[in-house]
Simulated assay, not measured.
Amino acid sequence: MLENISASHTFTKDGVYYFVRRVPTALRRHYTSSRISYSLRTRSASIAASRAIRASAQLDEYWYHLRCRDTELPGKHMLRSGAVPIGPEPISSPGVTNGYMTLSECVGVYLRLKGKGKGTTFHRAAERSCGYVIDVCGDRPISEYKKTDANTFRDALIDRGMAGSSIVRIFGTVRSVINFAASEKGLDITNPFGKVYFDRTAGVKDRQPVPLDAIRIVQENCYLADDEMRWLVSLVADTGMRLAEAAGLASDDIVEGAEGRYFVRIQPHPWRRLKTPGSAREIPLVGSAFWAAQRIKAKQGGSRFAFPRYNKTNTTNANAASAALNKWLKTYVPDGATMHSFRHSMRDRLRAVECPADIVDQIGGWQTDGVGHGYGTGYPIPILRKWLVAVA
Rank of each mutant, 00 (worst) to 15 (best):
D226L: 04
D227G: 11
D227H: 01
D227T: 15
D227R: 14
D227M: 03
D227E: 14
E228N: 08
E228H: 08
E228I: 11
E228S: 15
E228P: 13
M229K: 11
M229E: 10
R230T: 10
R230N: 07
W231N: 12
W231V: 00
L232N: 07
L232W: 10
L232A: 01
V233G: 02
V233C: 05
V233K: 04
S234Y: 03
S234A: 15
S234E: 07
S234N: 07
L235T: 01
L235Y: 10
V236R: 08
V236L: 04
V236C: 15
A237H: 01
D238G: 05
D238K: 12
D238V: 03
D238N: 12
D238S: 13
T239C: 02
G240C: 05
M241A: 06
M241V: 00
R242M: 06
R242N: 02
L243I: 13
L243K: 14
L243F: 00
L243T: 10
L243E: 05
A244E: 12
A244H: 07
A244C: 13
A244F: 00
E245R: 09
A246M: 14
A246G: 14
A246L: 14
A247H: 08
A247Q: 08
G248A: 03
G248F: 11
G248H: 14
G248S: 11
L249G: 02
L249K: 13
L249I: 12
L249Y: 10
L249Q: 07
A250W: 11
A250E: 14
A250Q: 15
S251F: 14
S251K: 11
S251T: 13
S251Q: 14
D252Q: 13
D252T: 14
D252L: 05
D252C: 02
D253S: 15
D253I: 12
I254R: 00
I254T: 02
V255N: 00
E256A: 09
E256W: 01
E256S: 00
G257I: 04
G257Y: 00
G257L: 01
A258W: 08
E259Q: 04
E259A: 13
E259Y: 01
E259W: 01
E259I: 03
G260H: 03
G260C: 09
G260I: 04
G260T: 05
G260F: 02
R261K: 11
R261C: 00
